[in-house]
Simulated scan of single mutants.
Amino acid sequence: MKIHYLLLALLSAVLTSCTFTETVTIDENGTGQYTVNMDGSALMAMAGEQMAAGLSEEQSKNIDTTFAFKQVFAKKKDSIAKLPIKTQQELKKLENVVVEMKMNAEQKQFLVALKSNFTNVNELQDMLKAMQTLQKLDKKSNSENPLGMGSDFANNNSNVTYSYTAKKFNRVVTVAPKDSNTVSEDSLGMYKMIFASSNYVLKYNFPKRIKKVSNPDALFSADRKSITVRYPFTDYMENPKKLDLIVEFE
């Protein structure tokens, strides 16, 4: 299975009703894991046959694979070398991000997970922004180029930073000034229509009990060490500040 096809399938998955789950798990020593899961099974339920029609018989039955972005970068090292140094440095940070994909047309299953380990919460990057950076590698005028498709996906004109101390965890969204907003009204309208039934879920797991959370709709686990908050995906696109979160520990 070629990585080129897998990235095309991944981009296709986001163009329908999906559930995006951002999971952060912090261990006792402050290290942890960051994962973004995309459940595009609704796409398979609605258009699985059409997607499978363009694939070989073997491909259309089942995909269960894992690859790291460093494999993609290795294939495009010549193109990357021509990019600005700052962009090359950004891509370097993504080398160890791992993509896991499961696709089964018969079972109406399309699951994609992007995973990365971190040594400090402050190192966390917004995974969807990382995907956007990757897509820019092959952004061309040719609409048939899969890596050039949807290069504005998840561009909500914001940046996410995370911090973690003994007493508090912060997820802070910074939105660029309106005059530098790169998201047009037409684009927002398109995303609002496409993602009308999609959700963006925050799921955070900590090594200590939680005292309180800034979002009153947060759901606690039985041991109060985990929280889950669900948002419409349109909130992520149109008002990302709604996804600000402060978690205080006992």
Rank of each mutant, 00 (worst) to 15 (best):
N117M: 13
L55T: 01
S163N: 04
E106R: 00
S56M: 13
L10Q: 03
K208E: 05
I194R: 04
Q132E: 14
I227Y: 07
I246K: 10
K178F: 05
S151T: 15
V172G: 07
V229P: 00
E106Q: 10
I3F: 02
G48H: 00
T25R: 12
L43M: 09
E144K: 08
N145F: 09
T25G: 04
R230N: 12
I246G: 04
S158V: 04
D217F: 04
F110P: 00
F169W: 09
E185C: 01
T165L: 05
F220Y: 15
K2F: 09
E49Y: 05
V160C: 06
S221G: 11
E100W: 01
G48W: 00
V183W: 05
S116Q: 14
N120V: 10
S12N: 12
L124A: 14
T161H: 09
Y5V: 09
K241Y: 03
M190T: 08
A13N: 03
V229M: 07
M149R: 11
D27K: 15
K203E: 15
N157V: 08
V247Q: 00
Q89T: 14
T234S: 13
N239G: 09
P216Q: 11
V97C: 05
V98I: 12
N170D: 15
L6G: 02
I26M: 12
L55H: 06
A13C: 12
N62F: 07
K167L: 06
I3D: 07
D64R: 03
M127P: 14
Q109M: 08
V99Y: 10
K208W: 01
F20I: 10
K178C: 02
T16G: 11
V24K: 00
K212W: 13
V213G: 02
D217S: 09
T16A: 12
L147K: 11
L7R: 13
Q125R: 12
L188D: 03
T25K: 14
S163P: 11
V160Y: 02
S143D: 08
F67W: 08
S60Y: 01
M193N: 07
V36Q: 03
P146A: 15
A154Y: 15
S79H: 10
K140H: 09
D244C: 10
S17N: 10
V99G: 02
S17I: 03
M131Y: 11
Y236A: 09
D244A: 13
Y231K: 06
G40V: 06
V14P: 00
G40D: 01
R224Q: 11
P146C: 11
K61I: 00
A53R: 11
T161L: 04
R230F: 02
M101D: 01
Y162A: 05
T35K: 14
E58C: 05
D235P: 06
N122H: 14
M193H: 07
P216K: 10
Q107A: 09
L114F: 11
A13P: 00
I63R: 01
L245K: 08
F118A: 13
S198C: 07
N239T: 13
R209H: 05
F73V: 08
S163W: 07
Q132M: 15
K115S: 11
V36S: 01
M190S: 02
Y236R: 03
L94W: 10
